[in-house]
Nucleic acid binder design. Structure first.
Lengths: 140, 140
DNA sequence: AATAAAAATGTAATTATTACAAATATGTAA
DNA sequence: TTACATATTTGTAATAATTACATTTTTATT
């Protein structure tokens, strides 16, 4: 997704495509690394020296309210962000702290207790040890 | 679960069953209301006037590390706690902010991308509007 | 160029959580 | 019981993520 289509996507959602907004969305789309606010800020301030953290917060909140991104609350102390709003789960490795995406098919899943509830968002968070870390631990 | 069996459960997990610890666990088991730290503290300080919030934090961390409770990170700003460690999902109503338990059968769910990963914990968080609030909104 | 509206900025405030040292309580051996 | 070591609790201060808000800057339009 290039800057032009990002710009169009923002306009479609009634968000004016300012430079900072485009860069933040571009970063989320390109990196796919589920960054926290600090990582986004630290990376982008290299390109936009006047960027402030408040702008990052404002922008992410704006994107979230528009449904353009998802807030990942898999960590207990900070929010992470994901521009991929399609259905997928997140796995946090408790050894290396990396967050992985995984495919999960929720359609047809057996659920009860939410009859007549309106479900707007589904978050699937798994935690454990990733394959890389298991491998490393086993060989050391 | 009475205080004696709570006490035994703690001992089994190498946690000395102090008065505060038993009361905190008892509260979690009885209330089942997914309280945050402040709610636990505010309720229990009535019975234990010397209770400090730090003790509540210490105790909950201890319980969590022992696997006796689950930390619910469905909210973006605070942790909630659940003594029910059996497999179930949590639904947060964005209107009344209540957190509901629901039954979910994860066994046999279609997943890929976590081959050779060790999964230790599975959290299912849904958000939306609960039936009560939908009903209320429709009639007003 | 003037103006109005929107966006970005910087600082201060808020709030959940943790760190840590001091005080208190508990259990055990003499 | 008393002395002592250990564990628990407490209170305060520090940390860190997030938000509030007023000011400044940018943008778009006339």
């Amino acid at each position: 997704m290039d800057r032009n289509s990002i710009s169009n996507q923002l306009i479609k959602n009634n968000i004016k495509p300012s430079y900072a907004r485009i860069k933040i969305m571009e970063y989320l789309i390109q990196q796919k690394n589920h960054p926290n606010v600090d990582e986004i800020y630290t990376e982008l301030v290299k390109d936009i020296p006047t960027l402030s953290k408040t702008t990052v917060y404002n922008t992410l909140n704006l994107f979230n309210e528009a449904g353009l991104i998802k807030v990942i609350t898999i960590e207990e102390n900070e929010a992470r962000f994901d521009a991929d709003t399609s259905e997928h789960g997140h796995f946090k490795c408790e050894n290396c702290n990396k967050i992985y995406d995984f495919f999960v098919k929720l359609e047809g899943i057996e659920i009860s207790g939410l009859e007549n509830f309106k479900i707007r968002q589904k978050d699937i968070f798994f935690k454990g040890i990733c394959a890389k870390c298991i491998n490393y631990i086993n060989n050391n």
